[in-house]
């Protein structure tokens, strides 16, 4: 793992790939094209790019209208202004009529860094997961963000994809991407660690630290939070007996709850959710903020050890 690329950047570049092969792809943004990385598509296909200005609610519903005309709209803004500010537009005008709109929001989680808590969505997975029929995807690295973006264009129905601002290591191995199918990245008998987004890499690092102490954990990348891969979650919970979830999101409503929903009443296991403990984020360098909220590999390793 050497190269660092943000998932938002991989998304932006994948849109250009899509634009070349599918003339139904249209991209909308709300004055954040430079940050969400839709700027690449804007430059390549200006006739199919629409900057809706700082009006996220309007953007979501324009996308709804575009989808009814046979187009495949990808909408981008920051996670808080998409999933948060335009929640009801997504709920009523996109998800309720099952329109084919892809909502791809960057700047999720506390790794946004310096902009502070007002711009760090720690609840977007929960908000989107609550909506009936919504598919929710959180890519772990740039490679996966690219594959997920390409998969979204082929998938019919509303999707929310969560992207990060921070450039993070790209996995050296190539993993397949299939919506709804979790990827097991590391096998270990002592605990099943389910992670998503940037926390997948941290969990893998934690696994290496623990391995040095003789503790072997499985690390499962749950890139699709909904519909969650219940078979995989159940199998690894049963196999390992200890379940830990790790996410750069509130421990309320996110991956941890999705995994708990699968296991509750079915599998006897120890269970711990690692995430943001019902708090808002704050300003700081991304690495410092992640450490403040206990989301670095060594901190995760320590918490896993406590749980065992």
């Amino acid at each position: 793992m050497s190269e660092k690329i943000a998932t938002r950047e991989a998304y932006g570049k994948a849109l250009v790939e899509l634009g070349a092969v599918n003339d139904k792809i249209v991209v909308l943004d709300a004055d954040l094209a430079g940050a969400t990385m839709t700027k690449f598509f804007k430059a390549a296909y200006p006739d199919r790019f629409f900057d809706c200005g700082i009006a996220e609610a309007n953007m979501m519903n324009i996308a709804a209208g575009l989808s009814t005309m046979g187009l495949v709209p990808f909408c981008s803004t920051f996670a808080l202004f998409g999933a948060g500010r335009a929640y009801e537009q997504i709920r009523n005008s996109i998800a309720y009529p099952k329109f084919n709109v892809k909502i791809c929001c960057s700047h999720a989680g506390v790794s946004v860094g310096e902009d502070g808590g007002s711009h760090q969505a720690v609840e977007d997975i929960g908000l989107m997961r609550l909506i009936p029929g919504m598919t929710v995807i959180v890519p772990a690295d740039a490679k996966e963000a690219r594959l997920a973006t390409l998969a979204l264009a082929e998938f019919r129905g509303p999707v929310y994809m969560r992207l990060a601002r921070l450039a993070t290591p790209v996995f050296e191995e190539d993993y397949p991407f299939e919506i709804g199918k979790a990827n097991v990245l590391r096998e270990g008998k002592d605990a099943a660690v389910f992670a998503c987004g940037l926390m997948v890499n941290e969990a893998l690092e934690a696994a290496r630290l623990l391995s040095a102490e003789g503790i072997e954990i499985s690390v499962i990348n749950v890139h699709t939070i909904k519909p969650i891969d219940a078979a995989c979650v159940t199998a690894y919970a049963e196999k390992c007996g200890n379940v830990i979830t790790v996410e750069e999101h509130s421990v309320i409503g996110g991956l941890g709850d999705a995994v708990a929903d699968v296991l509750m009443g079915k599998v006897n296991c120890a269970f711990r959710k690692i995430g943001i403990n019902d708090q808002f984020g704050q300003s700081g360098k991304a690495a410092d903020v992640l450490r403040e909220y206990g989301l670095t590999a060594d901190q995760i390793a320590a918490k896993i050890k406590e749980t065992l």
């Binding site: 199919r48 519903n61 709804a64 209208g65 005309m69 046979g70 005008s93």
Partner: peptide, 13 residues
């Protein structure tokens, strides 16, 4: 806004 999206979708196609 939905109607705007429909009208825009028609125009660009």
């Amino acid at each position: 806004s939905i109607a705007v999206g429909m009208a825009l979708g028609a125009k660009i196609q």
